[in-house]
Write a protein that binds this DNA or RNA. Structure first.
Lengths: 228, 228
DNA sequence: CGGGACAGTATTGTATACAACTTTGTGCCC
DNA sequence: GGGCACAAAGTTGTATACAATACTGTCCCG
């Protein structure tokens, strides 16, 4: 693997870099993240890589298996349901708060985000579109000015990206940006109740677009499958 | 510091041990957690201590300051409000679900928990009582069978303990166990709506019992105070 | 030819050595 | 005596060496 150009990677920088790659589906669920590989790729020692992997494991993006290594997490159907259950408890009310606090600058930012997402979709950059879609939700939490809830939602969004990688059914990504457009309208009107309802339905639509029948997620490797 | 007897402490065991000590207020907010001290106390090298501290920092129980060390976190009044805001979004609905799924064994467990809490209070073991009070809330999430939400609540409860250490006003701890008793009644009746409402009010009471006027939390040390 | 034991290889787990930084103490100069 | 520069001590940050464990391939035996 080529060395990634960067003067000096910190633990957090590496964790963020990996999280982004996971979020964009460049590192699909089950991918092994070898310590030596990563250390060489980033040009540092395993010490920092280990710390970054530990950080990602606390966000449930990486599964650590003792003496076996780190793997990009593979949420089960149950975990997938739970993640969206949690999001539906947090995000609608957060959208409500955000609507009431919305400024012109915030609206412009969200609008730009939607535009970029469209552009990414048109260019066939699905990973980037997914990342931007997540950023939209995160931005809403930021606008609601709830740092703590924002941190929780941030993790849930990243996990949602893994869930989508495993269980996405429809290819119709249009509904995504449309829902965001509708939310933006409600935000522009500072209509908290409408934003709350739209967010709630948006999340329900997302879950509905998943195929969570009890098919086991693809194993990390053929070997893994044989061990069961 | 004396060496704590244990054949071999793992990273998670140390993190759990420290978290418990923080939860019970044996390690008050601002306490410096020196790596050498902990390594000697647990009879292991700094490597594992660092990993445990990193884990705790991800739960916002420990604040890591580069080149300065690890300190038991000192939530700001704002953070305190946000933590209870998050709890009030998650816990009432979770209590609702729990009520519908409640079994006799669950009821017995919760009942025992309340009894222990009473006993601890009578014995003047306030730290232990606080830990048990937190466990009650965590147990509810477990009964609701929502692992993901349970993990989030677990962190919020631990942080709440730090908040209470810093901002607790009333000494009247009676309301605590009374609220838990009322919840238990609703659970026994499998009355989800009542449980949801009781939990909501219980959390509101908790916030109301805090003094979150913008007094800065006590500094980690005299030195810290002078630096500002 | 199949299966199991075993050795070799590769990867992770832990401890430790050293570097970098912060803090603390001392002394000089004004 | 106050303040600044500098030196010393202590603590954290990072890399690396070694130990422990898991994986892979080979050989031997039935």
């Amino acid at each position: 693997m080529n060395k990634i150009d960067h003067t000096s990677w910190s633990r957090d920088a590496i964790a963020a870099d990996l999280e982004r790659a996971i979020h964009e589906h460049r590192l699909p669920p089950g991918t092994k993240l070898g310590e030596d590989d990563l250390a060489e790729a980033y040009g540092i020692s395993r010490t920092i890589v280990r710390a970054a992997l530990l950080a990602l494991s606390h966000r449930h993006l990486v599964q650590l298996r003792r003496n076996r290594g780190a793997f990009v997490a593979q949420p089960t159907p149950r975990e997938a349901r739970e993640v969206f259950e949690a999001r539906s408890l947090l995000e609608p009310r957060t959208a409500h708060s955000a609507a009431l606090r919305m400024t012109e600058a915030d609206l412009a930012l969200l609008n730009e985000n939607i535009r970029d997402e469209h552009a990414a979709l048109d260019a066939g950059e699905n990973g980037r579109a997914l990342l931007l879609s997540g950023q939209f939700h995160l931005e809403v939490a930021r606008i609601a000015d709830q740092t703590t809830i924002e941190a929780v939602i941030s993790e849930l969004i990243s996990r949602s990206s893994l869930i989508i990688a495993l269980y996405w059914r429809r290819r119709a990504a249009l509904c995504e940006t449309q829902a965001h457009h509708a939310l933006l309208d409600a935000f522009a009107r500072k209509d908290g109740a409408a934003a709350e309802e739209l967010m709630k339905n948006h999340l329900l639509d997302l879950v509905a677009s998943l195929d969570l029948r009890n098919v086991a997620p693809p194993p990390a490797s053929l070997r893994e499958a044989l061990q069961r």
